[in-house]
Amino acid sequence: MEIAYYPGCTLHASSELYDIQSKLVFRKLGVELKEIEDWNCCGATSAEKTDEFLSIALPARNLGIADASGFSEMVIPCSSCYSRTLVSQKKLAGDPALLESINAELTQKVSGKIKIRSILELLVPRAQSGLIGEKIIKKLEGLKPACYYGCLMTRFPCDMEVPDNVENPQGMEIVCSALGAKPLDWAYKTDCCGAAASVNDAEMSLSLMSKIMKDAVARGANCFVSTCPMCQFNLDAYQEEIREKYGIAERLPVYFITELVGIAMGLSPHEMQIDRHFTEATGLLKELELI
């Protein structure tokens, strides 16, 4: 099957590996991700904080393109893009005047029919149905991930139907278990890493990340798994700083969910681009004889 795909800016830049992994992994599962034409930046948290109109209008242009694409579903792996696009769609469904005002500027109008999916909404049913299990070549035995969801997968600025438990989501655990890994129960799975604060309020962000890191270590995790490119980037790129500043001896690779699915299905570390992590990520997989 084919499904519409909105990568967002990050998956075409600093988290390009997530884009590459997603396409390959879903192809293996029989799903082709079809990138929508000529999409724009969703505005992310910055539009939400500074410009109410653009925070709805920027994702709306992408929604219009997706609505006109003929697909019934669109997957958005980035948590921020996912959240902003859903919020825009919901707001426009309840505000005909705003919808008209925005549609007046668009060649491809928002009709509201495209169903927005997170990456977990695609993976979880395929794990539960046994499809992922059938494709597994290498069970991820010995891998003890702390599944880290961050904020935007389950919490929204307005009422929203959330496809998982808000405070204790289980989607990533279901997928990791299907891969043969042993995800751990821990307390910081939906805590905030600071997102952009790692750049504009660094001390604050490092302190938040240190708590996340300390709990994962205390529970005996040997890695993090994430679906969000901001969470992944922060815990990966700033880990050395956190360890130094807060005296944490352990070093935990920070995987995207897609690379774990890929490795388990026999895709190579090269195909999964595992060498592009800031915190060394191939050593653990070798040690556990998974690659």
């Binding site: 389950t154 919490r155 600025p157 808000v166």
Partner: peptide
């Protein structure tokens, strides 16, 4: 404020 939405949730 990080707009983490914990308060609202």
């Amino acid at each position: 404020c990080l707009s983490c939405f914990t308060c609202g949730a």
